[in-house]
Deep mutational scan, measured.
Amino acid sequence: TGQSYENMVTEIMSMGYEREQVIAALRASFNNPDRAVEYLLMGIP
């Protein structure tokens, strides 16, 4: 849902990432938050 997506974005942003980076990582990871954080740390393949 939209609210849980926003919660994911906010939670990952709280780790120090910009909203645009978080959204790009979530898009690349098909909204998998664990993989999105991994992409933010290691780069999107």
Rank of each mutant, 00 (worst) to 15 (best):
T1E: 11
T1Q: 08
T1Y: 04
T1C: 11
T1P: 04
T1K: 13
T1N: 03
T1D: 03
T1W: 06
T1I: 08
T1F: 01
G2E: 13
G2V: 11
G2P: 13
G2N: 15
G2Y: 13
G2D: 13
G2L: 08
G2R: 05
G2F: 07
G2H: 07
Q3Y: 07
Q3R: 14
Q3C: 13
Q3F: 15
Q3L: 10
Q3P: 08
Q3K: 15
Q3D: 14
Q3I: 13
Q3T: 14
S4D: 13
S4I: 14
S4P: 06
S4H: 12
S4A: 09
S4C: 04
Y5E: 11
Y5T: 09
Y5C: 09
Y5R: 06
Y5D: 14
Y5H: 08
Y5W: 07
Y5K: 07
Y5L: 06
Y5Q: 08
E6F: 13
E6K: 09
E6H: 05
E6S: 07
E6L: 04
E6T: 05
E6M: 05
E6D: 04
E6A: 04
E6V: 04
N7Y: 09
N7D: 11
N7S: 11
N7P: 06
N7M: 10
N7I: 12
N7Q: 11
N7G: 12
N7L: 08
N7F: 07
N7T: 07
N7K: 12
N7A: 12
N7C: 07
M8S: 07
M8F: 09
M8I: 14
M8Q: 10
M8D: 04
M8R: 05
M8T: 11
M8Y: 09
M8W: 05
M8H: 10
M8P: 02
M8E: 04
V9M: 02
V9S: 00
V9F: 01
V9K: 01
V9W: 00
V9E: 04
V9D: 00
V9C: 04
V9N: 00
T10K: 11
T10M: 10
T10N: 10
T10E: 11
T10W: 06
T10Y: 05
T10L: 10
T10A: 09
T10C: 10
E11I: 04
E11K: 14
E11D: 12
E11C: 02
E11M: 05
E11V: 03
E11G: 02
I12F: 08
I12V: 02
I12H: 01
I12C: 03
I12M: 08
I12L: 14
I12Y: 05
I12D: 00
I12R: 01
M13Q: 04
M13C: 05
M13K: 01
M15I: 15
M15D: 02
G16S: 14
G16D: 12
G16C: 14
Y17H: 05
Y17S: 01
Y17M: 05
Y17K: 00
Y17N: 03
E18T: 12
E18R: 10
E18L: 06
E18Y: 04
E18N: 12
E18K: 08
R19I: 03
R19Y: 05
R19D: 03
R19E: 08
R19S: 03
R19T: 01
R19P: 02
R19C: 04
E20L: 07
E20A: 12
E20R: 08
E20G: 10
E20K: 15
E20M: 06
E20D: 13
E20W: 05
E20I: 05
E20S: 10
E20Q: 10
Q21I: 09
Q21R: 09
Q21C: 07
Q21P: 06
Q21V: 09
Q21K: 14
Q21A: 12
Q21Y: 03
Q21S: 10
Q21H: 10
Q21L: 07
V22K: 02
V22F: 02
V22W: 00
V22D: 00
V22M: 00
V22Q: 03
I23K: 12
I23F: 07
I23S: 07
I23W: 03
I23Q: 12
I23V: 12
I23G: 07
I23D: 12
I23E: 14
I23P: 03
A24F: 04
A24I: 07
A24D: 12
A24T: 13
A24Q: 13
A24H: 10
A24S: 12
A24N: 09
A24L: 08
A24G: 11
A25M: 03
A25S: 06
A25Y: 00
A25E: 01
A25P: 01
A25V: 01
A25F: 00
A25N: 02
A25T: 01
A25W: 00
L26T: 00
L26M: 07
L26C: 01
L26G: 02
L26Y: 03
L26A: 01
L26I: 00
L26K: 01
L26N: 04
L26E: 03
R27H: 13
R27Q: 13
R27K: 15
R27A: 13
R27Y: 08
R27S: 12
R27D: 13
R27F: 01
R27I: 04
R27C: 04
R27M: 05
R27W: 03
R27G: 11
R27P: 02
A28P: 02
A28R: 12
A28G: 05
A28Y: 07
A28N: 07
A28V: 09
A28Q: 10
A28M: 09
A28W: 07
A28C: 03
S29Q: 04
S29K: 06
S29A: 10
S29D: 03
S29G: 09
S29R: 05
S29V: 04
S29M: 02
F30V: 14
F30E: 15
F30R: 15
F30A: 15
F30P: 06
F30D: 14
F30T: 15
N31A: 04
N31G: 09
N31H: 06
N31F: 08
N31S: 07
N31D: 09
N31T: 03
N31V: 03
N31Y: 03
N31K: 03
N31R: 04
N32L: 03
N32P: 01
N32C: 08
N32R: 10
N32G: 02
N32V: 10
N32A: 08
N32S: 09
P33Q: 11
P33E: 06
P33H: 14
P33T: 04
P33S: 06
P33W: 05
P33L: 08
P33Y: 11
P33N: 02
D34N: 15
D34W: 03
D34M: 10
D34R: 14
D34L: 08
D34S: 12
D34K: 15
R35H: 06
R35E: 14
R35Y: 05
R35L: 12
R35T: 13
R35A: 13
R35S: 12
R35Q: 13
R35C: 07
R35G: 12
R35P: 00
A36H: 02
A36F: 01
A36K: 03
A36T: 04
A36Q: 05
A36R: 01
A36S: 03
A36W: 00
A36P: 02
V37H: 07
V37S: 07
V37W: 04
V37A: 08
V37Y: 09
V37C: 10
V37M: 14
V37K: 15
V37L: 14
E38K: 14
E38L: 04
E38W: 07
E38Q: 08
E38G: 06
E38F: 05
Y39Q: 13
Y39K: 15
Y39E: 10
Y39F: 14
Y39C: 09
Y39T: 09
Y39M: 14
L40W: 00
L40A: 01
L40Q: 01
L40I: 02
L40P: 00
L40R: 01
L40C: 03
L40K: 00
L41T: 15
L41D: 13
L41W: 05
L41C: 09
L41K: 15
L41I: 08
L41Y: 10
L41M: 15
L41E: 15
M42N: 14
M42P: 09
M42W: 05
M42F: 09
M42V: 08
M42C: 09
M42E: 13
M42D: 15
G43S: 12
G43L: 06
G43W: 07
G43N: 15
G43C: 06
G43A: 11
G43D: 11
G43Y: 05
G43Q: 12
G43H: 07
I44Q: 15
I44V: 14
I44G: 15
I44S: 14
I44K: 14
I44R: 15
I44E: 15
I44Y: 12
I44A: 15
P45K: 03
P45H: 12
P45T: 11
P45V: 06
P45G: 06
P45E: 13
P45A: 14
